Amino acid sequence: MPFINPEDGHLTVLNLFKTDSRDRVDTLVKEMSKIVDTADFPGWISSTVHRGEHTPGTLNFIQWRGMDDLESRYNDSEFKHHTVPVFREITTYVRLMQNEVESSLRHPSLGDVTEVSPDRDDYTVIEVLGVDPADQRALVAHESTAHSWLLDVPGYRSRTVLRGIRSRNLQGGDSTLATVGTDNDFVVVYSQWAGKEAYDAFRTQAEADWSGARSGFGAKRGSLITSADWNGYRPVHTRSAGDPVAV
């Protein structure tokens, strides 16, 4: 199963897809899982498909050896002439985000490593935070501090902070990818919870009932970010290099 460890030095790519119906989510999961099951790309390490629970969509959490391997995949004829057209047809929004893992911290009950797996019962929340590139490092450092006070929040399991490098979408011409925004203009937070109910209770708690630590965190975050988007997911399918290729 895939693990998240900043010391591994992997390039982590989060392919975020939104669509307009639950039926199309089923199609997205099916198409993404087919790609995962036959993946045999140089430098590819693992892929884990996540199904959107809060709003319709999917996310593929992909680990690569490095940027050159990812670019080779993007330049592959099959990717350009099959994968891109398929996902253009069934999505309303696509963002392919390249990241480096900066920190990954867990509740003490979870051991020494963050695991990403459909065999677990995690409710996974992914936040994409827009930021001025000049403030990105400050936001990364600040987001990592949340772990200290989240330890007291019922249902909290883990929190991984990823520094965004570059985003693309499928809007380029001739089956190419288009750049979204500028380099280093986002941060991603990948957190795991005991269930949707636990996360909803945390997210909807009245600000008057927040701890002092949470209030201070929220004020500082608000001063650094330019936008925020989130969805809740369940990991539903995974495969790593070395696992058998589907036939």
Rank of each mutant, 00 (worst) to 15 (best):
Y156H: 15
E102G: 10
T38K: 15
P244I: 00
S240M: 12
G111E: 03
T92K: 11
T179E: 14
T38G: 14
D37P: 05
N184M: 08
L70I: 03
D200P: 09
F87Q: 07
D121Q: 11
H82I: 01
T114A: 11
H10R: 15
H82Q: 12
M32L: 15
G172F: 11
W210H: 14
G130P: 00
S223M: 08
N5S: 12
V188C: 14
R214M: 15
H147D: 09
E143M: 15
S109C: 14
R24S: 08
I165P: 06
E71Q: 05
Q171A: 10
E31T: 07
R137G: 06
S33K: 07
S109M: 13
T204A: 10
L177R: 05
S240D: 14
A241K: 12
K34P: 01
G43L: 05
R163Y: 07
Q63D: 12
G172I: 10
D68S: 03
S104T: 13
F87P: 02
H54P: 01
N99V: 00
V247F: 13
A206L: 02
I126Y: 05
G195T: 02
Q98N: 01
S103Y: 01
A198T: 06
A208C: 07
T91G: 09
P42D: 09
H82L: 11
D37I: 02
V187F: 04
R137Q: 11
D26S: 13
T27C: 10
E197K: 04
S215A: 13
S103R: 07
R239M: 09
P235F: 10
T204P: 04
Y93E: 15
P6W: 03
G195Q: 06
A246G: 08
A39Y: 08
R51Y: 06
D119K: 00
Q63F: 02
D26T: 08
F41W: 09
D119S: 10
G216H: 08
I62S: 13
V101W: 01
T27G: 07
